[in-house]
Amino acid sequence: MASKQQITEAIYGAIDEVNAAQGSENQIAKDPKAILFGQGGKLDSLGLLTFVLQVEQRVQATGHPSFTLTDEKAMADTATAFRTVESLTDYIVSRL
């Protein structure tokens, strides 16, 4: 099973990817406390979905080809699970 570190790296990789489309004032930090969703979040709805799918692909590449972040459960958990890098990491690890 992928380690928490691997999952964090996968999330950071996705952050690198989406930052290309973010202005300099809206860059997302590669930091466990960085806010991804909700108040203080810097991604619009398209950016968030792109980010989610990026994370999903990267987690799948760690040896979990069936992993999904876009099922009903994940969507229902968005507000808490996607709040920060740290909460997303924990959420993904809990679902592996």
């Binding site: 990817e17 989406v18 290309a20 489309a21 398209l46 979905l49 792109t50 799918l53 692909q57 876009t70």
Partner: peptide
């Protein structure tokens, strides 16, 4: 391309 991205956002191509 990611079929899910297309279906959810109508974005056909990835950021790459």
């Amino acid at each position: 391309t990611n079929p899910k991205l297309w279906l959810m956002t109508k974005a056909l191509y990835s950021l790459e």
